[in-house]
Design a protein around this nucleic acid. Structure first.
Lengths: 154, 154
DNA sequence: ATATCTGCAAACAATTTGCAGACGC
DNA sequence: GCGTCTGCAAATTGTTTGCAGATAT
């Protein structure tokens, strides 16, 4: 989804809740759409300040929460200090592999896994609203680096 | 696995790292094996103090980290404030469904999903060391409660 | 006009750390 | 006896909140 379109949706979302569009909120939404990477609240704070030095951390946090509520952003990770965000509106759901060495995040989607999840939930009469699948480990590049380091040492 | 056996393993683990077995560490390990529920650091702190009023929060946190490192415990959740722990040594791996209404956690295991995860990882030449699959939503009981509430209202 | 927003600074909650004395090996 | 552990209290980190003035509608 284009930033302009996302912005339009954000306006609608705000109007529906009798909230207001402000320059800060607009900037934060646009910045969130300006990256294809995952980002932290602190990243966003830095980016926003770059545009407008008066933006505060509080507003960044408040706006990010608002965007998550409206399903414009999703949080992922949590658990190693900071919460990571990614924009999802208009994006397909996907899961993540996280390299614990370099922090690289690989996104993937497996329809069969998705189907099986629904199946398992149905068996327990559980209604899924959201799910996270996170594979932690070591990416191809880091595995290779590790091996060559071992060779050099041996 | 029995607490006594887990304790033995813990001793071996500590010895291997030139660390020491202390009464606090022993108590915390045993308490962790004394529950089949997931618990927080604060829960553990309360339990440990019940045995020995002098145990400090710091020691609880330090010991829990140690137990996670040694794969005696696993962390799950995180993300809503406190980290949850569960003992895993000698237990089969499983995943979780979390009811967002009542907090209930349902454990499940699906071999086919496990297999597909390995498959996806292999495709990306990614080495999995750990994974978490978490289905969030609403459990059977809460769904039912919700429905009857809706009926009463309507 | 007025209710929502904002920045600021202080508050918070969970967890971590520095230190001096306690204690396992 | 040495080096690791511990409790304590203070520090850190990420995030939230109260407030008075600013601003969108």
């Amino acid at each position: 989804m284009q930033p302009a379109q996302a912005l339009k949706r954000f306006e609608t979302f705000l109007r529906g809740r009798a909230l207001r569009m402000t320059s800060q909120r607009r900037a934060i939404l646009e910045l969130a759409w300006g990256t294809h990477e995952h980002f932290t609240a602190e990243d966003m704070y830095a980016w926003a300040r770059n545009l407008d030095a008066s933006v505060s951390r509080a507003t960044v946090y408040r706006t990010l929460s608002l965007l998550v509520e409206g399903a414009f952003l999703a949080t992922l990770d949590r658990g190693h200090g900071q919460t990571l965000y990614e924009h999802i509106l208009g994006h397909r759901h996907h899961d993540h592999m996280v390299c614990l060495e370099c922090g690289k995040i690989i996104e993937f989607l497996n329809e069969e896994i998705e189907r099986l999840q629904d199946e398992v939930a149905a068996k327990h009469q559980f209604t899924i609203t959201q799910h996270t699948l996170r594979l932690e480990g070591c990416c191809m590049r880091c595995s290779a680096a590790r091996e060559s380091a071992a060779e050099a040492a041996g």
